[in-house]
Design a protein around this nucleic acid. Structure first.
Length: 686
RNA sequence: GGCGAGGUAGCUCAGCUGGUUAGAGCGCAGGAUUCAUAAUCCUGAGGUCGAGAGUUCAAGUCUCUCUCUCGCUACCA
């Protein structure tokens, strides 16, 4: 497959510059791309891999405000930090850029104008929250208020970070501007929208048939099932218009008169960063960038996590096609998620293994992490990282299988042949020929798997050669043969050395450092992939010294890493108290003790429970979004705190008269606010 | 509730367009061996392929129903 196209352009999802990189990111979008690209480079193919920091968007400005600094300071900090993290794990982009650069702004604006001229957008006026104090429109994330679902009192206008549900700003209870704290007003604003429904037909053809403009473009069978599935689900469900601009002051300004205070939506801006990065790479290199994005002889591959599928398979292709002249992705091998020690990775709970911390704790041991992540990469479904598994893979596979094999080959050679590669007679036995066959076929099987984005398989194939080497030594027993037949011993060790040199090549996309150390010791450094398969080490070659390749991971280290999880201090976001209120305002709220006497699930809604509560003076219905935390039988008979004088509201066809108060716990759970024994329904709380 | 992806040996996972006794790595048990980081190699135990029904000469592999997990989406006061 790789032989038919002239060049390959690889991108990895632009990491968002408001937090550090963890192993989930690495396993999702960076390590697979790195392996893929290293392989293509070894094949001497024309390949470019670009990435960069995604530095715009409301979340960054919000964070800047919270920390009392500027968005620039935030993105500068993470731009540096993320690059250190990548470098620490030998993630070697050809070019790492950033979206806040003037080059990128200019290019994104040009691109936007072209689309505008070509009628790709519609202009619509909608109601949006406006901060009367700061005199500016508020992006969804700039509005905070009570979460209508879990009651969390500091949910954002686009989602509640406590319960994870997606929201829109008008749903918030008692919305406040996060800029000034003022209550926002509804005002009209004009934004540009991308009407995606226009594109459903060709998208369907592109995704399902791999056809573009009536011509074959790619083989859809090579795409992952979950990628195509999710895309079809979106297209079949009907595509909506999506705003391509935002009212914000941090981003690429909309280059249109009268559009002050408006910027390009990050999802328009960010993927264009791939193009800017390619241009900047080309300039640095003194070559033409355009073939990489425009020549039909180029394969475009996006490595991403599953959360980005829709953007890379639907929205970005629309933007590229609308502009014209640009290539569409040939494949988007999105990975699923990496879980950690039985739970999902969570930045705010510090339930994560941070790339930088790993490198600090295990200096120089990037290959170990790369190996483990490649072995368990979430290629088809979510995967799970545990430190115990890390330990066992490093100790049993890297140290015992690979490290020990290399060591025994070198020790045997130095013992019997003074550390020089012995010459082979050429009289191969059946066993020898079997191993030589495997040696010859391994580069192909590893490469095939890599080209199919099956990195775990590829690594298995590569390790298979090493395992065969161990078996060979054990069965041929050169330490016995040496006593009677020196030439036969030379043959055995020569072959074992050739296997070692071959292993260094086929493992190098995964274990660049280790491969380099092995190859240097054997004097076979910097050989191309296509050299692999046959004899690589010449007879008579003196071997360099090679210390033990892998230290074992101790139980203490495992324990230490485990104990770090979830225990970072101050990681829980302490929420600022709300603005002062008055006793009179408090008096307006009528809280009472009530007892739940019946409960049932609201049909058609996963999260709603319809409760009947006794207040002592009446019985009423309250709809509560707690069904995911409590079964109906769990709540019947409980005494609860009821907000009694809340205006009735119809939810899913049921009129809810009041609200049951809940405490939302750090782990995202809910607890009833239960009065002490002795309080009876109807008792007033004040 | 709708849609998508999953549910395969103790663990982590492969199984392409349906076809001999369902595989790998790790773990475990027994054995071999000592060149090597107490490493290696061999053998084995042996999983109703989430549950049920159906199509077929033949199903882990296709169809339907159910169930659990994950994601998107709706509901959320």
């Amino acid at each position: 497959m790789s032989a038919t196209l002239a060049r390959t352009l690889v991108t990895s999802a632009l990491p968002y510059a408001n937090g550090p990189i963890h192993i989930g990111h690495i396993a999702g979008a960076y390590l697979p791309a790195d392996v893929y690209v290293r392989y293509l480079r070894l094949r001497k193919q024309d390949v470019v891999w670009v990435c960069g920091s995604d530095e715009h968007g409301a979340a960054i400005t919000l964070r800047a405000r919270k920390e009392g600094t500027t968005p620039r300071a935030i993105v500068d900090r993470y731009h540096e930090e993320m690059q250190e993290a990548f470098a620490g794990l030998d993630i070697a982009f050809d070019h790492y850029d950033r979206t806040s650069s003037p080059d990128h702004h200019r290019f994104a604006q040009e691109y936007f104008l072209t689309l505008l001229d070509q009628g790709a957008f519609t202009q619509e006026t909608r109601q949006q929250f406006f901060d009367p104090v700061e005199k500016q429109f508020l992006a969804d994330r700039y509005v905070q208020g009570g979460c209508p679902k879990c009651g969390h009192d500091k949910a954002y206008g686009d989602q509640c970070e406590k319960c994870g549900s997606a929201l829109s700003p008008e749903e918030l209870i008692d919305p406040k501007s996060t800029l000034s704290g003022a209550t926002p007003e509804w005002r009209e604003t004009t934004l540009w929208y991308l009407p995606m429904d226009r594109h459903e037909d060709w998208l369907r053809e592109y995704l399902e048939q791999g056809q573009l403009d009536g011509a074959p473009h790619h083989d859809p069978k090579t795409w992952k099932a979950h990628v195509i599935g999710q895309c079809k689900s979106w297209v079949d469900g009907g595509l909506q218009s999506r705003a391509m601009t935002r009212d914000l002051d941090w981003g690429v300004p909309v280059p249109v008169e009268g559009a002050d205070g408006k910027v390009l939506y990050v999802w328009l801006d960010a993927p264009l960063g791939y193009i800017t990065a390619t241009k900047n790479w080309a300039e640095k290199k003194g070559v033409d960038w355009e073939p990489y994005w425009k020549d039909a002889d180029t394969r475009l591959v996006h490595f991403i996590g599953k959360d980005n599928i829709v953007f890379h398979c639907i929205i970005f292709p629309i933007l590229l096609k609308e502009h014209g002249g640009y290539l569409l992705p040939h494949n988007v091998p999105a990975n699923e998620f990496m879980n950690l020690e039985g739970d999902k990775i969570s930045t705010s709970r510090n339930w994560a293994v941070w790339a930088k911390e790993y490198i600090d704790d295990f200096p120089g041991r990037s290959d170990e992490m790369r190996y483990v992540l490649a072995s368990i990469m979430p290629e088809q479904k979510d995967a799970e990282f545990t430190w115990e598994d890390f330990q066992s893979r490093v100790n049993n596979e890297l140290a015992d299988v690979l490290g020990n094999f290399v060591n025994r080959v070198i020790v045997l050679t130095s013992k019997y042949f003074g550390g020089k590669v012995p010459a082979a007679s050429g009289n191969w036995t059946e066993t020898d020929l079997g191993l030589r066959d495997l040696m010859a076929s391994t580069p192909g099987s590893v490469g095939d798997s890599i080209e199919k984005y099956r990195f775990r398989d590829a690594l298995q194939h590569a390790m298979g050669l090493v395992r065969a080497g161990n078996k060979y030594l054990t069965e041929e027993e050169p330490w016995k043969v040496i006593k009677s037949d020196e030439q036969r011993t030379a043959d055995i060790l020569n072959l074992a050395l050739q296997v070692t040199a071959n292993a260094a090549i086929v493992l190098s996309p995964f274990l660049p450092r280790t491969s380099e150390r092995i190859a240097s010791a054997l004097g076979t450094a910097h050989l191309p992939w296509d050299a692999a398969g046959g004899d690589l080490v010449p007879a008579g070659q003196p071997l360099g010294s090679l210390p033990i390749l892998f230290d074992k991971v101790t139980d203490e280290q495992v324990e230490e890493q485990r104990s770090k999880l979830g225990h970072a201090e101050g990681m829980r976001e302490v929420e600022a108290e709300k603005a002062q209120t008055t006793f009179d305002d408090f008096q307006a709220i009528d809280l009472r003790v009530a007892e739940v006497i019946a409960a049932e699930k609201v049909k058609g809604a996963d999260k709603l429970l319809q409760l009947t509560v006794r207040t002592g003076y009446d019985e009423r219905t309250v709809v509560s979004g707690i069904a995911e935390h409590f079964a109906p039988e769990d709540v019947v008979g409980r005494k609860v705190t009821l907000l009694a004088n809340l205006a009735p509201r119809k939810i899913r066809g049921v009129v809810s008269q009041g609200m049951v108060l809940m405490a939302s716990t750090e782990d995202g759970g809910l607890r009833f606010v239960t009065p002490e024994e002795g309080a009876e329904p109807g008792d007033i709380i004040r």
